[in-house]
């Protein structure tokens, strides 16, 4: 019985930890399948966390907050598109620049709006859904935030968009061979721009989940490298939407497990657990090497001659 409770708690926590990673990784998937590595992800998630929180706090509506986060993410994606697609500048430098800019802007705006109060401001966050009654043994698993369910549902949706729709085919085409796509009459710039905008919105929702559902407050270390975990997960997932689920769940599970073991009094070097996804990814990159399904045109700016 005690073990069942432990397991139920673990699964419930795994889903919560995995949620922002699912959004972030799906967002990055759109960008990378279209041929753009978006290192702006860490900052875009931070921006989403901040804008969602601030807009909800100022307007008093969580849904307006979420919408504002989506728009902010979209704008960050468009800025990345302007730099890396239109102007064709170096993708990793542009992406890091966007991470620095969106992080700086969020921190600056946070101070302007909320000042330097001793008590961190907070909002009434999204409630957990109550699908099963509180007393039911499986209630912790089923009674999650709506955003968690939406995130899980998005995985097959994104798979379907990328693999089964015309738009998805266009994304894959410009990500694999932009010259051929252009010759076939596709607008490479427009398709990559759209993919980056959608990706940016998803990343921002991942960040907003933390402030608007899980925590109800905004702290400066809120993203704490989750964006980089997503960069790792996408390689782990071999650029396939369905594998994103497994990657996020395995990582979420390891995190949830070490948190639980810690609260139970086990003394663990948790920092080493936190490093696992990065180490595993570097090993995965090494083993997969050139056999990976990385989009062929990833990191290559496209220029019409």
């Amino acid at each position: 019985m005690e073990f069942t409770l432990f397991l139920v708690g673990l699964i419930a926590a795994t889903l919560r930890v995995a949620t922002p990673l699912i959004y972030g990784t799906l967002g990055e998937l759109f960008s990378e399948r279209s041929g753009v590595l978006n290192l702006g992800i860490e900052g875009t998630m931070f921006l989403g966390a901040f804008v969602g929180f601030a807009a909800a706090s100022l307007s008093g509506s969580l849904w307006i907050g979420l919408l504002a986060a989506i728009i902010a993410g979209l704008l960050a994606g468009l800025l990345m598109a302007l730099l890396s697609v239109r102007l064709g500048v170096n993708q990793h430098v542009a992406g890091l620049g966007i991470t620095l800019l969106t992080t700086g802007l969020s921190l600056y705006a946070f101070r302007v709006i909320f000042g330097e109060s001793k008590v961190p401001p907070s909002i009434e966050s999204f409630p957990m859904l109550s699908i099963l009654p509180e007393t039911h043994i499986l209630a912790p698993i089923t009674n999650q935030y709506l955003l968690t369910f939406i995130g899980l549902a998005l995985i097959p949706v994104v798979w379907w968009i990328i693999n089964k729709t015309r738009f998805g085919l266009q994304i894959r085409a410009v990500g694999e061979n932009p010259e051929a796509a252009d010759a076939a009459g596709l607008n490479v710039y427009a398709i990559r721009t759209a993919a980056l905008a959608i990706g940016g919105s998803l990343m921002a929702v991942g960040g907003a989940f933390l402030t608007m559902a899980q925590l109800g407050s905004f702290t400066f270390g809120i993203i704490a490298g989750r964006g980089w975990v997503c960069i790792a997960l996408i390689i782990f997932a071999n650029w396939k939407a369905v594998n994103v689920l497994w990657g996020a769940l395995i990582f979420g599970g390891v995190q949830a497990l070490q948190l639980r073991l810690q609260t139970l009094g086990f003394k663990l070097p948790y920092e080493l657990f936190l490093s696992l996804p990065y180490v595993v990814t570097i090993i995965a990159l090494t083993i997969a090497g050139r056999n990976s399904s990385a989009p062929s045109a990833l990191l290559k700016p496209y220029r019409r001659e």
Binding site: L39, H92, G225, W228, I231, A232, Y278, T281, I282, L285
Partner: peptide
């Protein structure tokens, strides 16, 4: 790019 970035974390 990816490996040096992850080594930071």
């Amino acid at each position: 790019v990816v490996t040096t970035l992850l080594m930071n974390s």
